[in-house]
């Protein structure tokens, strides 16, 4: 697996462009480490053990029935 490098402001500007989200360089710099932290948190959701678990379709009545 490729080594994860810290996100840079330029990375965020590029991602924001994909999202059609205007993001000034100064804001991107401030958000870069935050996004890195959140993505690291999401790493726990590793799909390794999820092979047969379908996503919940919508959210209707989680406990109904």
């Amino acid at each position: 697996m490729e080594e994860q490098k810290p996100l840079t402001a330029a990375d965020l500007v590029a991602v924001a462009r994909l999202c059609r989200l205007p993001l000034a360089d100064a804001r991107a710099a401030a958000l870069a480490s935050e996004l890195g932290n959140i993505l690291a948190l999401m790493d726990v959701l590793d799909p390794e053990n999820l092979a047969d678990e379908p996503p919940a379709i919508g959210y209707r009545a989680q406990w109904e029935g």
């Binding site: 993505l39 959701l45 999820l50 996503p55």
Partner: peptide, 14 residues
């Protein structure tokens, strides 16, 4: 907005 769709789906599955 910058979180991957796959992370959202993994969260749903978890």
């Amino acid at each position: 907005e910058m979180l991957p769709a796959t992370a959202y789906l993994a969260a749903q599955r978890r």
